[in-house]
Design a protein around this nucleic acid. Structure first.
Lengths: 140, 140
DNA sequence: CGGTTATTTGAAAACCATTTTCAGTTTTCA
DNA sequence: TGAAAACTGAAAATGGTTTTCAAATAACCG
């Protein structure tokens, strides 16, 4: 990821490195303010503005994806699959990317129903992760 | 919709009526500030706070659905189908609800891939509506 | 219909995530 | 190593949304 940034012409700075590290230490996904806290473990002077700016660059390069929360705030997850979507645990917020979103048929049906030409879609799933499903781990 | 509000124990007020009217005059969906403008045509004293509060009530009653925009802002659409999702025109913002979101197979595959138990999902599609697709209407 | 109470309303203020501004710092590169 | 370009953080600005609170309105009862 750092290499991709450099390749794209961006400087290799301490602040950006700390954001990248934070991103991988998170639970699959994290908000800018969570990344600030995690990132400061590596670079105490890190500022929230730089977290936002780094995430913006990473998004543009397709290295990170922005997830939408119900309240309208955002969360960011490293991209693993080119066409990936996410399942988010409603209890612990663990987030996993999945691929094989086979909704071609749904899109075709929507196009037929509405006359629209669909270009992109958002799909996010919410549920419980294996750990939070397991009985006896309610304290987690 | 008004009847449903009354049935649920809410007062039938001029302000709420104007928000309902605005909702149906919109292009399938509208933001709170757009609803304020539309609603004021019916009730000039309408305030934005009441628009928000009315939408909140309508959401709770399942009469309206909140759509998420890329920037995190929200838009509201009247509910037509119990399990509906929306296609939004990226050009004119016309929004149409569709049903028959047949992603049971996708959900099953995600559950198998990740071990999560999926409870709900968000699905929004973006594209061009028939009018905006039509050539020669570029001025619209 | 008139009076009383409970509900609702709108303005202003508070909130909070995100963006912009700007002067100082760090990187890059020759 | 030194100059120029890129980057950074703090503080201020923005803008959608929520809270507060006194005034207005609707519902209800007689």
């Amino acid at each position: 990821m750092l290499a991709a940034l450099t390749r794209a012409g961006y400087s290799n700075t301490r602040a950006r490195r700390s954001v990248l590290e934070a991103l991988f230490e998170a639970n699959g996904q994290a908000s800018p303010s969570e990344l600030l806290v995690l990132g400061r473990a590596h670079h105490p002077a890190l500022g929230i503005v730089t977290v936002y700016r780094t995430l913006e660059v990473l998004s543009e390069l397709g290295l990170v994806r922005r997830l939408h929360q119900d309240d309208g705030c955002h969360t960011y997850a490293p991209v693993q699959h080119h066409h990936g979507h996410y399942v988010i645990c409603v209890r612990c917020h663990r987030t996993i990317e999945f691929e094989g979103c086979d909704i071609g048929a749904v899109i075709a049906s929507v196009e037929a129903q509405t006359g629209f030409k669909v270009r992109e879609h958002w799909l996010e799933m919410f549920g419980l992760c294996p750990d939070c499903l397991a009985p006896g781990r309610d304290a987690a």
